[in-house]
């Protein structure tokens, strides 16, 4: 009887441990740290943009959901108190400028505000796709 109790207690502890591990590392797994994430692709911003323009499906399959590093000269900066975008413009559409929009991580907002049009930067971020106007990059950081 005592032996059975022991087994039950041990099983319960193992069960709780497993539940805790699942809870912590599966259910509560952390978001990707995009600042530290390694880029799967590194290319010029214009080449990156043109791949979407030339073949939206192929470029989406290749880049959507991936960390990409792009380099170009800044076309414009859009910023507010707690939000900032680096924008690379490559085309004119019905609604104005079209290109790549990089939504910056909070830690980089101040750095972005110091950038000027024409400054050469390398931006790393998470590509979420092309909305027929712009290629969208999120969680972006400045590499150099």
């Amino acid at each position: 009887m005592k032996k059975l109790l022991k087994i039950v207690i041990i099983l319960a502890i193992i069960g709780l441990g497993a539940a805790f591990i699942v809870y912590k590392f599966v259910y509560n797994q952390p978001h990707t740290n995009f600042e530290k994430a390694k880029a799967e692709f590194s290319l010029t911003a214009v080449d990156f943009y043109n791949e979407f323009i030339n073949n939206k499906e192929a470029a989406s399959a290749k880049y959507n959901g991936k960390v990409v590093e792009i380099t170009s000269e800044v076309s414009k900066i859009e910023s507010d108190t707690n939000i900032a975008y680096i924008v690379f413009v490559f085309s004119e559409g019905v609604f104005g400028d079209e290109g790549i929009r990089c939504d910056m991580l909070p830690d980089f907002i101040e750095d972005v505000k110091m950038l000027k049009t024409g400054d050469k930067v390398t931006v790393k971020g998470y590509c979420t796709g092309y909305n027929d106007t712009d290629v969208i990059m999120e969680n972006c950081s400045i590499i150099k």
Binding site: N28, P30, G65, T128, G129, D132, I136
Partner: peptide, 19 residues
């Protein structure tokens, strides 16, 4: 127009399942 991968969730696992 909305890009599905631009949605962010509190929990990374939910975001993964959603996508």
């Amino acid at each position: 127009k909305v890009l599905i991968k631009s949605y962010t969730f509190e929990k990374a696992l939910m975001q993964k399942h959603f996508n």
